[in-house]
Nucleic acid binder design. Structure first.
Lengths: 252, 252
DNA sequence: CTCGTTTTGTGCGATACCGCACAGACAGGA
DNA sequence: TCCTGTCTGTGCGGTATCGCACAAAACGAG
């Protein structure tokens, strides 16, 4: 069961969980914009200008080290929101957010968002709950980095990515995956080769197609299931309200 | 500059940052209790009964895997609070909390705490800000697990532990450190041997003494400095109020 | 179609860490 | 005091990953 809903993916599930009136107040300030692969939404240390709610895009939260090496600590799709440090009290994020899968998302100015955050208790509950899921996701990354093989982590990464999109084809180079997982590119090449030999995926220059999701699930580590369950429980808690399909708003 | 204050350590710095009236409401419900090395405050999946504010004790937040292997994702001393998932909306924590350094701490029933959390905006701000620091700490664990050597991580662990206590002697076995870092015991033995040869630490069966903090700082990775800075900025934001030395209350 | 650039494949030695086995050293209780 | 269980030291082969170097293949622009 994929995290992505079966019917229509052009909305953000956190926004969709808002009640009618709460959504009405945010709606006029939401801007639908295109998020291009590789574009940086914010850098560690920036002063945040916007809060993003991805719809079809996926972003990656990364820590960049002094020597330039990077590690993804979490990723955010249409189940989440970017700039969470704003709600925990700091307009200066500790990580970088970079678009990992191109697509669309809504953005809203921090001022408007913060005001509504303080006004609406439900919005607070929703966002705090999302932060909880994020903490779990980051914790699992820590565990996974310690204990699991590159192949297992690649499976997890592939699965959690296709779960957030409709297509089972990813537009991404092995080099990029490597930099997100914080490993060598050759390590990804080898692991991907194994998965290809097993018939679970296929790929060509800059594209990966998942052929057998269940196969990948047999190879990946427990972290994948735990993370999926965490987000599942988050989202099932807030029944989707009727306006899910009417997130149309000022388009940029 | 250690995180622990120079004068007196028998209070919790988050509690100390509360204004007079906010603290007065919590005070009567705070119970000072002893936290023994190795005791488990909560397990992943438990229903939380208490919120803890360590004073001299230090707790470790761990993820336990199916095969029993564990990884510490963060640790909490007198700069923090345990059971944070309560504030983000779930009375069921995702991790285990175990006492890593014996000592004292305050506990308070979740009901009282939640009520005050919703009443006091400052308390909310404070706790959310702490959650922010926690996220940074967990993220750094993820980065560290990926990129840094056991020796570097051991240095970081030793430093962040003595920074939270007055003494520079730790009561802990190498076996325990290994299980927290998620590595082999022999790996710790070897790294500790190197640090001893370098004259930075000394140790005997179950005890480690830090002799040269600056020496350890030269060996550890950047994660240590980043984490320290994060907590420093958190705590400097909330000036200690006058009641810091009067956290006396119903003693168990 | 060709050329140049980007992406992927492969080989190799070096290294860090693991898993296991067991020896030695210490500490606290009988 | 000795004894016993716990903790630490050490050796050794196995493995995953790294770092580097370069070859081969794929794609896109001209």
């Amino acid at each position: 069961m994929p995290i992505a809903p079966s019917g229509g993916v052009s909305y953000n599930r956190l926004l969709a969980a808002l009640p009618e009136d709460g959504f009405k107040r945010l709606g006029p300030h939401l801007e639908l914009i295109q998020l291009q692969l590789g574009s940086i939404l914010y850098e560690s240390g920036d002063h945040l200008q916007y809060v993003w709610f991805p719809t079809t895009a996926i972003a990656s939260l990364q820590y960049i080290m002094e020597d330039g090496a990077s590690t993804e600590v979490a990723s955010v799709g249409n189940e989440g929101v970017l700039s969470v440090s704003l709600f925990t009290g700091s307009a200066v994020p500790p990580s970088r957010a970079i678009v990992q899968t191109g697509g669309y998302g809504y953005r809203i100015k921090v001022g408007v968002m913060l005001e509504e955050f303080h006004r609406s208790e439900l919005l607070q509950r929703l966002l705090l709950h999302y932060i909880q899921s994020l903490i779990v996701q980051i914790s699992l990354t820590a565990v996974c980095n310690r204990h699991h093989s590159i192949e297992q982590q690649l499976c997890r990464w592939l699965l959690s990515t296709i779960n957030r999109q409709l297509s089972n084809e990813l537009v991404v180079t092995q080099e990029l995956i490597a930099s997100m997982l914080g490993v060598r590119r050759e390590g990804i090449t080898e692991a991907a080769g194994n998965l290809k030999d097993a018939g679970f995926i296929n790929y060509r220059r800059g594209h990966i197609t998942v052929l057998d999701r269940a196969g990948l699930e047999t190879l990946t580590c427990e972290c994948y299931q735990v993370a999926k369950k965490e987000f599942g429980s988050l989202l099932s808690m807030y029944a989707t309200t009727g306006h899910a399909h009417s997130q149309a708003c000022s388009k940029k």
